[in-house]
Amino acid sequence: MSQPVAQEKINKAPTSVPDRLFSSLSRASAVTILLVLSGVAFFLTIVGWSGMFGDIEGMSGSDNFLEYVGPLVFGTVYSATLALLIATPLAFAVALFISHYAPRRLAQTLGYVVDLLAAIPSVVFGIWGITVVAPLMSKNVYPWANDNLSFIPFFSGTASTSGRTMLTAGMVLAMMILPIITAISREVFLQTPRLHEEASLALGATKWEMIRQAVVPYGRSGVISGAMLGLGRALGETMAVAIILSPSDGYFWSILTNQNSNTIASNIALKFPEAYGLDVNRLIATGLVLFLLSFGVNMLARRVANSGFSGAAG
């Protein structure tokens, strides 16, 4: 009786022809998606291969691939980190405002407003950034920061008068990743068990104390994974950076000057339309690097998210 004899019976149950057709069709779609998506890395590798290891003479600029992609990786990570540093505290506060401070009836509308921010095309953000943010900052903030804070390396150098700096790019990127961090944080904050909140309030806690005791520990991993996803998005964001940043070749730490390391995505957008020959393959190879970079960050974000909202236990 322990080993079921009829195990195969379930699979043998005859199903009608359309039933089988439909299930194979949906299965085929799933397989297609699997193949296509896993084909991304494959195709980029094939076409990018000669860009990584091909004849350097055939490319503009005679440095090898690592020397070529190094500053771009630096610029990508630097701008994304900057964006993350600006966006995360803001997103945290906005999410808390929507989930716990705003009147219930208003909360939904406010959430909608933040989502709308996510829907604005990046090219619009880019043009807005360079016509509004860049002059605003270069007139009002950068000279002051440059005069008073230049002892900090990040603020040293000659302040840009056009505003096409790493900081401007980082700020606009921050606006673009803020909605995703906010949305995920808001979600976990709203999931805080009511019992925890009420237990805290019943002990005479003020609202902020309740949030610190019940909401923040519970939502911590959610905020972190939201921030990681935001970082992933910032790494791959193209147009805003391509429009705003004035790029140079090399590594630059200062965030107020006209000399900035370009990002991978922006470099592709700027050079690809005019590129030919092996340069195309090299750009595609940098695309592969970007893919792996954001893939890694996204995996990390999932791992954090899957580690559970376990903060509540601790």
């Binding site: 998506l37 084909g39 195709f43 193209t238 995505a265 592709i268 595609i284 695309g287 954001s294």
Partner: peptide, 27 residues
């Protein structure tokens, strides 16, 4: 198959859009 597809779709929601463009170009 289902869990592989789910994981792949999950990862791919975060693919940089320019990479998608390069993929189509390479294809």
């Amino acid at each position: 198959l289902a869990s592989a597809v789910t994981r792949m779709v999950d990862v791919m929601t975060g693919i940089p859009s320019i990479v998608a463009g390069l993929f189509a170009y390479a294809l």
